[in-house]
Design a protein around this nucleic acid. Sequence first.
RNA 1: GGCGGCGUAGCCAAGUGGUAAGGCACUGGUCUGCAAAACCAUGAUUCAGCGGUUCAAAUCCGCUCGCCGCCUCCA
Length: 492
Amino acid sequence: MPIQTYNTLSRRKELLKPLEKGHIKLYVCGITSYDFCHIGHARSALAFDMIVRYLRYRGYTVTYIRNFTDIDDKIITRATEQGVSALELAGRFIDEFYVDMDRLGVDRPTLEPRATEHIQEMIDLISELIGKGLAYQAGTDVYYSVNGFPEYGKLSGRNLDDMQAGARIAINENKSHPMDFVLWKGSKPGEPTWDSPWGPGRPGWHIECSAMSRKYLGDTFDIHGGGQDLIFPHHENEVAQSEGASGKPFVNTWIHHGFVTIRDEKMSKSLGNFLTIREILTQYHPEVLRFFIFSTHYRNPLDFSETAMQDAMTGLDRLYGCMAAIDDLGTTGLIADVTEIVSPKDQDKLRTIEERFQKAMDDDFNTAQAQGILFDAVRIVNKICQQLPARPCHADVQLLKETGALIKQLAGIMGLLQEDARTYLARKKTAMLLELDISEQEILKLIQERKDARTAKDWARGDNIRDQLSAKGVELKDGADGTTWVINRDHR
RNA sequence: GGCGGCGUAGCCAAGUGGUAAGGCACUGGUCUGCAAAACCAUGAUUCAGCGGUUCAAAUCCGCUCGCCGCCUCCA
């Protein structure tokens, strides 16, 4: 079964055909590091983390490059405000980025080049463009000449005439065409600066990705990704730069993910309606955020809300609960005969989990559908666990253990179920206990008192204790092995 | 104004020609002294609206309405 991906360039799904057999070369635009990352950045990192994991699971070698923009107007402005150098500020927030990524369990890309470490490559590329008549110097700046690249607009589906009609950009006297964009900026006093054939200055934003992707992946590579807001102008300009210089196709497949919204409005720095990754992680387990993000297709908008996060948490708890139930199954004292209780239909469902999961993921990484398949399996596993007799037969337990391992492996592509189930549930309990005004000792003491009361068949006293605990958010569960307790999250 | 996307049960969300996955919530049942968890059952004759194509459409085409994004830095 081939993998299909939606290509922004062609506006449809296409079969993924690597240029080099079995090897995918992927470049993703990373962050401009001048502040803490918000959930939108998390979605980007997680979406491509999932894509890379899936491609590797499907047997591809993936070379994954994700850059850092560590020189830019916003960085300079913020650094000036804080009285530090631009490089210092950028370095600091790259470190903070790694803190967030590590907590989210995002795998490191193959290489993470920084713009400031590739100034020479950019200068070379700009010189090449000037040599081909696609760029010109104006004052201390160098601009790309969009009129020299007839295909300008092909990625974003625009044309120069339409854009000029609706242009919101101020006319720049230096430019020979309003849509020309800067490749090299002459630096103002006090700004970071590098020497160049055009005088001291710094690179424009778009040129870094053309230069770095070319250096590490070549003139043409398989996939280039980023947020939908990068399609224009950033990626459009990259196409113009790279294809203008090399004369070859730049990228085969463009993958763009949708935004995270709040109350259906784009979450962004400029709107000020963003939540940082670390703010979310003080409240939720990293996998809850992953579960939430993968509950919809990567190209759709995703509306953040407390309700949605609560739902995601409940869903993740259900997955972990199922894993814990499987882990709890003993492997000794089993009956050897083959009186399986699992119906042929359920057996078939369980046997086709991986096949169905792959089919969903092969279709443009449909994680929402893939999650549905995992839950399908969870329901069947829970059903079997419940029907299992005290001394289950070997074949049934074997099937459950294998299914558990498979669910765990597949969920792992989305970075879910990576923790030991019992650890997850126990840690969750501890964390939530801190929010309650009752200690574990007190709970255990009350449970013992209730047990004594129930032994004496003093149901009123027993119920009273349960209600008392319930009022504090602690729900009791009477099981065969005694009473356990969980924290009712609706309590807070 | 140009370009693009979306509108599926109370909420979230798959499904892009063959008769509506899954999650959350709700309700009834099994279990339990009562509960919780889990399981079972139940919910859209219907996919924003109106037309059209087809043996067959949520799925294709046209129009209308509503929402969102990009066109300026932005994941």
